[in-house]
Structure formats: C-alpha cells, structure tokens
C-alpha cells in the first residue's frame, strides 16, 4: 500500500535568509506581527481575569516578537502601576507614546502617573491630550477634574466632574468631587445635595459624610453636621478626622466640654496629628486651663514645627499666663510662617 505524505512547512523567520524577495520579507513581517498580536491577545485574556503576572509575561513575549508594538507597552505599564513600579511604568508608557502618539489611553496613563507624582499641571495637560485623542471615558474627565481642583480651578473641575457623571450617572466618586468643587465655589446647598448623591450610590465613601458635615456647618446646621461626623466615625472607627471635625463643631457651638472630649480622643487615636493637639489646646484656653493649653500647643509645634496657627494659639495661652516675651516670640514665628494677622499682635510687643 502506498503511503500518502503529509508535510508541513517549517517556520521561516524573516531574518534568516538573504535570498528572500521583498514580498517574502513583507510576508514574514506580517507573520511576526500577527504572532505578536496573538501573544498580546493572550495577555489581554489573562489581564481580564486579573492574572497580571501571566499577562505581563505574554506582553513581554509579544514585545520579544515585535518590539515596535505600542499596545503591549501600554498594558505592561498599567500592570506596573498596579505593582507600584512607577519608574518602569513610566518608561513603558513613554515608549508606547513614542511608537503611537495617537494612542489616547497612553496619554491617560501617563497623566495618571503624573497625578500620582503630584505633578498636577502636566497631568492636566496629558489628560486633555487623552481626551483630544479620543480616550473619552468618564474617568478621563474625572481625573482631569481632579487636576483642575488641585490647581484651584474649581469652575473647570465642576464641568469635568459633570461630564464624568454624564457618561456614568452612578459615578459616586465624581459626585463627591463635584460636591467639593461646589463647596469651594460657595454653593454649600448644592454641595450637600451632591454628597448625598455620592452616598446614595456608594455608602462606603466615608469622606462624603465628613464633607457633608462640614458643609452643614457652613449653612448653620450644627446638629446635622454632628450627625454626619458621627456617621463617618461609626462607619470607620479609625477616621479620626471626623472626630476632629465634630469636636470643632462643638467648639463653634461653645460646647467646650464635648469639644474637649473629642479632641482628646483625636490625640489618642493619632498621636502624630498636630491639629488635634492644636484644637485641644485652644479648647483648654476656652476653659481657662492655660497651662494645659500651652502643653498641648507645645506638642502640636513639636509635631509640626512649621504650624503657624499653633504658634498664634500658643502665644495666646502664654499671654494669658503673663509670659509676654514668649508670647511675642510665638507671634513673630507665626508671621515668619505666613500668618499675617499676627502682625498686629506684635505691635504690643514693642
């Protein structure tokens, strides 16, 4: 019986022969690109499953086959960000942009890394590029909004957060940030509404309770504010800022006994939090415990030697203790630290 032959051609690499014609080389390149794409897709499938190590390997393999392939660089950068290998991530994303400057997401990722590095101005520029190049996800607007907020352009941040919400109506974080933009623009009632929306979509955003409380203070609703601060603390028993703010609410209500309790708790919860000692100190001043106040303000300044307000307050306590030269020294230091109102206090020192 005759045998029938089955033969399969072996792999021909594009670089292994000088004798190939141009069409043949082009075909080889096509083949390589195709295989790099296949590896890339395998990586994507791993990434979708959250198997970033495997995904990273596949992206490496893809780039081994075809080193001018922008997408694996981009995806590898994203994985490196998750791994917090920021320098390496920045190299990858820069390469992705170099290879394909129309890749909106690459600008988005670079912007995000700049955001992490607090380079707000350049992050803002890159987020804008990402949007202009078609990466118009709700997050693009959200992060650009953050940058505008950080740079103090609250009108622009308000617009960006609104666009983010427009693309993703239950984007709870965007509601919180829009609320904060409104707050900075003095629209406290609007802010309260947005914080409420944020919490309706995600009740785990503790800061929204806290922020809503602070807006309620601005509208004179101290009881409501105390309720919100208490909720924030109940949701996160380590959230000492809520207790600090609740203490501040009591302080502003002249309920110094409760303020004292809260500020004492704050300093117990976070022994390194200078404002807690500052607030404890001024509450003791209100309760005429000037020596106790002086001690607390000493601690605040020890923790943060550039805490201008604490110097103003300690000067106040020292004045009440009759330590005028020391009080004056504190006010002078406060001026050096940028507290202008202390200028008029030191006129008494001369």
């Amino acid at each position: 019986m005759k045998q029938i032959l089955l033969s399969i051609l072996t792999i021909l690499l594009a670089f292994n022969s000088f004798s190939q014609n141009p069409n043949s080389i082009e075909n080889e390149i096509k083949e390589i690109r195709k295989n790099a794409s296949l590896k890339y897709n395998e990586g994507v499938r791993f990434a979708k499953e959250g198997k970033y190590t495997e995904a990273h390997k596949k992206f490496d393999q893809s780039l081994f086959l075809y080193s001018d392939f922008a997408l694996p660089y981009l995806e590898r950068a994203k994985i490196k960000i998750i791994r917090q290998e920021f320098d390496l991530a920045m190299n990858d994303v820069a390469k992705a942009i170099e290879l394909n400057d129309g890749l909106g997401e690459a600008f988005y990722i670079r912007a995000y890394m700049k955001l992490l590095m607090n380079d707000h101005q350049n992050a803002l520029t890159d987020f804008t590029h990402a949007i202009q190049k078609g990466f118009t996800e709700s997050e693009s607007y959200y992060y650009r909004g953050l940058m505008n907020f950080e740079l103090g352009d609250y009108n622009s941040s308000l617009i960006d957060f609104t666009l983010a919400i427009d693309k993703n109506y239950d984007f709870a974080y965007a509601y919180n940030e829009r609320a904060s933009s409104k707050r900075m623009l003095g629209d406290f009632h609007g802010a309260i509404h947005d914080y409420k929306q944020a919490l309706a979509y995600d009740s785990t955003i503790i800061v929204a309770y806290d922020n809503r409380g602070s807006c309620k203070i601005k509208t004179g609703d101290f009881e409501g504010a105390i309720e919100d601060y208490t909720k924030a603390f109940q949701k996160d028993p380590e959230y000492y800022l809520a207790i600090n703010n609740r203490g501040s609410a009591y302080y502003q209500m002249s309920n110094y006994e409760l303020a004292l309790k809260d500020f004492t708790k704050v300093t117990e919860m976070n022994k390194e939090y200078a404002p807690g000692y500052n607030n404890l100190g001024i509450t003791k001043i209100q309760l005429a415990n000037y020596l106790g106040a002086e001690k607390d303000l000493d601690k605040a300044i020890e923790l943060d030697p550039e805490y201008g307000a604490a110097y103003v307050n300690r000067g106040y306590a020292k004045e009440f203790l009759g330590k005028f030269p020391a009080a004056c020294a504190d006010w002078k230091m406060a001026i050096e630290l940028g507290i202008e109102e202390a200028e008029k206090y030191i006129t008494e020192c001369e």
Binding site: V44, A47, K48, L71, L74, E75, K78, I81, I82, Q84, E105, Y108, I109, Y112, E137, E139, Y142, Y143, L146, F149, A172, Y173, N176, E177, S180, R183, M184, A198, I205, I206, V207, A208, D210, N211, S214, I217, L241, N244, N245, S248, Y251, Q252, P275, N278, N279, I282, I285, Q286, A309, A310, V312, N313, G315, Y316, E319, I339, E341, Y345
Partner: peptide
C-alpha cells in the same frame, strides 16, 4: 486675638480608591 481652630476635610474621595479600581481599563 483670634484663636485658630483647625478643621480637616479630605475634599476628594479619589485618595480612597484602590489604585487599580478606577484608572485601569480592561484592554
């Protein structure tokens, strides 16, 4: 003299987002 009370708010919630929750777009 005015005593200076310090209230402290974290205005933006994004610091509380886990790093891969929001920036990461599944390819």
């Amino acid at each position: 003299k005015m005593l200076k009370l310090k209230t402290d708010d974290i205005y933006l919630a994004w610091n509380h987002i886990p790093i891969d929750d929001l920036f990461y777009h599944v390819p």
